[in-house]
């Protein structure tokens, strides 16, 4: 294809991406380096019967005018990145110097909002992803054994948790685990503890969110693995049987190696999706016990005072996180591409 033709074909799509993905990224970086204007102080001289006094007061009018005129605020360099709400360099240094043990250091770190969010996001990503893959594989193996007439309806039902709007799916589960809902009540009965509430403790909230994550993600892994199972060569399986492989050995040494490339694909997609975990935290009203990088950006933008610079700084840090997460994939694809070209 000629370069010119290529350009005209790709132009609309490229323009949309530049205007609404690339430029916002620039905007995020710029916003993160600015901070709202300080309040303007005015000095007035107040003269009374006992002599004159100088009084400093906030000039509300001038402040409002200045803020309205340049809403971006004043340049702050990397100041926002290192303040207490973000990387908190000072607090981290103090925590390191005053630590009594490594555990103590981490628990101090956990009190800082950004590190708390990072802790949850990473834990969620790296626990949910492997569980999704294992559950998906188990379901695929099970469904593969069903009678053909049952396969269609089973796949239909299996797709539902994935297809449902994440916020709606988490609300549905949230109502069920409510202390007065069906699952909440059942758990109270099982553990014989009428006070048990899944919302009360951070640990239980984390577990609930991850259970939701697995429920939501498993269908995707299932569908991909199920499609992969259809292409397992029956000759290889038969050969393995003739050589005396047990059922488990057939799965372990024939089926799983065949599905390995698919597992890489599923884990890549799941890593990307789980890293931006957001809706379940809102749906489960779990902001108090669990926050992810996305949810603290949301809170900054939604609060009574909108803090653009803080949200922007967290966004930049999140994007760097995504880049680190993706870098192995990008490097591998680049090598493949170069290999093909040569």
């Amino acid at each position: 294809m000629k370069h010119r033709t290529f350009f005209w074909f790709i132009l609309p799509s490229l323009a949309a991406m530049i205007a609404f993905i690339a430029l916002p990224l620039v905007s995020v970086v710029i916003q993160s380096m600015h901070v709202e204007h300080e309040q303007i102080m005015s000095v007035t001289e107040n003269c009374g019967p006992f002599g004159c006094k100088e009084e400093v007061s906030v000039d509300a009018e001038a402040t409002a005018a200045l803020r309205a005129e340049s809403p971006l605020g004043r340049f702050n360099g990397l100041g926002t990145y290192f303040d207490r709400g973000h990387l908190a360099s000072q607090e981290v240094a103090t925590a390191w110097q005053e630590r009594t043990s490594l555990g103590d250091f981490f628990s101090r770190l956990y009190n800082l909002p950004l590190y708390k969010a990072i802790a949850f996001t990473l834990t969620y990503t790296f626990i949910v992803t492997p569980l999704v893959i294992m559950l998906g594989l188990a379901i695929a193996l099970g469904v593969n054994r069903l009678a053909p007439a049952l396969k269609g309806p089973t796949i239909f039902v299996s797709l539902l948790p994935m297809i449902v709007t994440p916020l709606i799916g988490s609300l549905i589960l949230f109502w069920m685990i409510d202390a007065q809902g069906i699952i909440g009540k059942s758990l109270q009965w099982i553990f014989d503890d009428p006070e048990l509430s899944l919302k009360a403790s951070p640990t239980l909230t984390w577990i609930t969110l991850m259970v939701y994550g697995v429920w939501h993600g498993a269908p995707f892994a299932f569908v991909v693995f199920y499609a992969g199972l259809q292409t397992v060569s029956s000759e290889t399986l038969e050969a393995a049987r003739i050589d005396g492989a047990t059922r488990w050995q057939q799965v372990r040494y024939v089926v799983i190696p065949h599905l390995m490339p698919l597992a890489v694909f599923v884990s890549l997609i799941q890593l990307m999706d789980n890293f931006r975990v957001f809706e379940p935290i809102i749906g489960f009203s779990a902001q108090a016990n669990a926050s992810s990088l996305s949810s603290i950006i949301f809170t900054d933008l939604r609060g009574d005072v909108i803090r653009f610079n803080s949200a922007a700084a967290t966004s930049v840090i999140t994007i760097i996180g995504v880049a680190i997460l993706l870098s192995p994939v990008l490097i591998r694809t680049w090598r493949d591409f170069k290999g093909k070209a040569v």
Binding site: M17, V26, V28, I297, T314, S315, L330
Partner: peptide, 27 residues
Amino acid sequence: RYAFWLLMIALVFRAMPHITLVSGYML
């Protein structure tokens, strides 16, 4: 080669949490 790079950039864009972009739009 640029077609390949466009696809790679698209992959990075695909991975970005939407809310990070939203904070760029708002102001």
